[in-house]
Design a protein around this nucleic acid. Structure first.
Lengths: 347, 347
DNA sequence: TTGTACGCGTTATCAC
DNA sequence: GTGATAACGCGTACAA
């Protein structure tokens, strides 16, 4: 179907120079006379020469490939979780224009330990980890230090994460200012680092506000949000606000509230976390704490390409996106607002 | 950080055989004495030998890589469209276990013509195309015949698609049996092959039912669903069912209906298309025509790996998933025209 | 059945 | 500034 692709040797011969010179031109290397460079470049364009990634990888001992490793535990799979897609989009955007490419490994939870060893051994530019448990992250890091974890991992593993604590605090703050006082939360998985941060933020903010924390445990699934809301409604029928640790669960919460006959936001205000594509799909549209996943993934990618990763880490600010699900109820008067206690977090 | 990875030569030396024999064992080739095979295999395991993809690609002239090409036109980006994630998941699942890997190219609409040429030129195992317009698909096929388009493309380009026509018919059928007679549709982009199939199915089914088609054009975005629904409500205030060409638009439709004070499914039944993760996020849960995207992507991948792609094509059955948004209204008799509920219409 | 030797397209080292 | 040339790790005719 296609002719043999032109090689560097073809270019060199055609331009009347050595392959070394041609290689230098291709790679923008130093030590080539300007007129030679121009001549070679012309030939490259004419032949539509593209270097062979395989040969380049073999010779250089490293491939221009960023590995994306996603551990699929049912909650976080590419097919069913908006987060993963955003990560891919962010990496892809950063890689566009560079010769580097993105390779994806979706590994089943059970096969993860084995598969991660393989990927770590074969990684070149580096790897980005999504939903990789801390112990496996540490293991990976031991084998390959060119790695960034999306979200905190084991202590020394480079990571990038959103400011979960501040995000949760902002959500509580916003709900409090809207006059809500029976302010409950649905948390994520017990030991998930993101979930821990969001729970901490909620608890700190509630303590600062002098309110009792009302929490229900959960996973990061819709069903968990639904069940958690049912439990909370049973235990605290008078609750008037919900902070939910992720959008997917928040969707379940909205459904549970609707099923229980509570109006949103009139009876109960709801704020989710992630600001995923789901927020505009609910009725009413969901307030949510935005984490800039695409930018974070792009930053992680840049860090990998850059190289200096020793103890690298980065925390991105989160921003509260207020939508219909948490508009202040006009019936709640300002008079019901408590005075701000000392140490109340700034917005 | 890591020792030099063992090479095939290491394995051969360690096992006391030639590299050829070792290579045969690695690749499961024929012509190796059983006891030799076992001995070599033992060494491979002991050294944890993994063949170098780069060297293999260079020597064999082809890399074990499946290229996924997604044209990002704003409607179909990995970050914001559930469909793309499902494709990735399907390919990844099929590739798990094989040495082949998945490489992702998200190409901007404007850069698509240029980028597709590059990918086609460098493709090895082959490519899977998502949201690639027919003309570009034809162009790609001309340069590289190891390609499958997700959804119909230009005439000779191998493709895999859901049975859009039958899916749409099933949706209309279901709504009709639920007693709906003022049955409108919101279509997808004018020239999108999937959208065309769904529109055709709707129109055929309506004709067969002896009902006048009521259609509004749209894109595949939520806003399009919202606007289309508003238009339809304005033009046909008595409509009692909506078939929407994709879930994302259906979400918009649900919102528009809610804003207009129409109850779902009591006043208006809604059926979407795709059965994406959105269906369980709406209130009420959305009936939808399921297309098995993951399986389709896996099948496409298998086809690529298999090789015989000349004029290959495959159409997958769609199945209607009935949920709350289109439950038959008990007040409606089967086949009887509906009675107007009290308090309607308004606005 | 087994082994030798060359080629794949590129980078990098070192002489010129 | 330029150019031979040796790796890089593997597949595979071809010879034994």
């Amino acid at each position: 179907m296609q002719e043999r692709r032109p090689t560097l040797a073809d270019v060199a011969r055609e331009a009347g120079v050595s392959v070394t010179a041609a290689s230098r031109v291709v790679n923008g290397g130093r030590g080539v006379a300007p007129h030679v460079r121009r001549r070679v470049q012309a030939v490259i364009d004419r032949l539509a020469y593209r270097p062979s990634p395989a040969a380049r990888a073999l010779a250089a001992g490293r491939a221009d490939v960023v590995e994306l490793v996603v551990v699929d535990d049912g909650e976080c799979s590419l097919g069913s979780n908006p987060y993963c897609g955003r990560v891919v989009a962010g990496i892809a955007a950063e890689l566009a224009g560079s010769p580097a490419q993105l390779r994806i490994h979706v590994v089943d939870e059970s096969a993860a330990p084995r598969r991660l060893v393989e990927v770590a051994g074969a990684a070149s530019l580096g790897a980005i980890l999504v939903n990789v448990p801390a112990d496996l992250g540490a293991d990976f890091y031991r084998r390959c230090d060119r790695v960034v974890s999306m979200g905190r991992s084991a202590p020394r593993v480079p990571f990038i994460d959103p400011d979960n604590v501040a995000g949760a605090r902002a959500a509580v703050d916003h709900l409090y200012r809207g006059g809500r006082r029976r302010l409950a939360a649905i948390h994520g998985p017990e030991r998930n680092p993101c979930a821990i941060g969001r729970r901490t933020g909620y608890q700190e903010a509630m303590r600062d506000a002098g309110l009792p924390p009302l929490g229900a445990g959960g996973n990061f699934r819709r069903e968990g949000g639904y069940a958690g809301t049912q439990r909370l409604l049973a235990d605290h029928p008078d609750l008037d606000a919900l902070f939910v640790a992720c959008d997917v669960m928040a969707v379940g919460a909205l459904q549970a509230l609707a099923a229980a006959g509570r109006r949103v936001p009139d009876d109960v205000a709801v704020v989710g976390f992630d600001d995923s594509l789901l927020v505009s799909c609910t009725i009413p549209p969901l307030s949510s704490v935005r984490q800039p996943v695409e930018e974070m993934a792009a930053t992680a990618t840049r860090a990998l390409l850059g190289g200096h990763l020793a103890a690298w880490q980065s925390t991105f600010p989160t921003t509260l996106k207020v939508r219909e699900s948490s508009r202040p109820d006009p019936r709640r008067g300002r008079g019901r607002l408590r005075r701000r206690p000392a140490g109340w977090p700034r917005g």
